[in-house]
């Protein structure tokens, strides 16, 4: 079953980013868009290194949302990876494009602003994230454990596609280690 796994992927086995990379591929996610984030770096590098993915570095999260929405309508499932503060720029695009047009927008959010945040602005913006998702009725899960990652991510992607609805997977510092001062 794993004879086609590359050395790079083998080295990533057992990591959150290697696991997530595999779940995305297993669910035929072919477009990986992102706005850079330190914590997401290994996941982003893994996408760039894998020809399975069309990987697009966007300049803003709402631009990436538009790209993912267009790609989905064109037959290509995509993901948008970003950090907490980037999600905070998205409510209008979610409310006027992804949600009403019923687009299965897959969002991966590297959670900053909690569990050791050193920047007050990040802590403030983090508090807006879940209320915004709840207000828009967007399904979201916070992933804290590696042993739950595959189940939550795999089921969430399948549900998003089946129900034609956006979903947000919030990657807790408990899973990723987060970003610490210094």
């Amino acid at each position: 079953m794993r004879h086609d796994v590359t050395e790079r992927q083998a080295a990533q086995a057992g990591t959150w980013h290697g696991t997530l990379h595999g779940v995305l591929k297993a669910n035929a996610v072919r477009l990986f868009t992102y706005v850079p984030d330190r914590v997401l770096t290994p996941l982003i590098q893994g996408a760039h290194a894998d020809p399975h993915f069309t990987t697009v570095a966007a300049t803003r999260e709402e631009e990436a949302l538009g790209i993912v929405a267009g790609a989905w309508m064109g037959g290509m499932l995509g993901v948008l990876a970003m950090q907490t503060s980037g999600f905070a720029t998205l409510p209008n695009a979610l409310a006027s494009l992804a949600v009403p047009y019923q687009i299965p927008l897959l969002m991966l959010i590297s959670e900053r602003g909690t569990l050791g945040e050193f920047n007050l602005g990040q802590a403030m913006v983090c508090r807006t994230m879940r209320p915004v998702l709840d207000a828009l009725g967007v399904e979201h899960h916070t992933i804290t454990r590696l042993d739950e990652l595959t189940f939550i991510a795999d089921r969430s992607i399948k549900q998003a596609v089946a129900t034609q609805a956006p979903v947000a997977l919030i990657l807790s510092p408990l899973l990723t280690g987060g970003k610490v001062f210094g």
Partner: peptide, 25 residues
């Protein structure tokens, strides 16, 4: 034709997404 009813400014990103998904169109 695809018609936007909001998300001002995203016509080009949406078109880019369609272009990436369907390089033959």
């Amino acid at each position: 034709n695809f018609y936007m009813l909001g998300s001002m400014g995203l016509a080009c990103p949406i078109a880019l997404g369609v272009a990436l998904a369907q390089p033959g169109r």
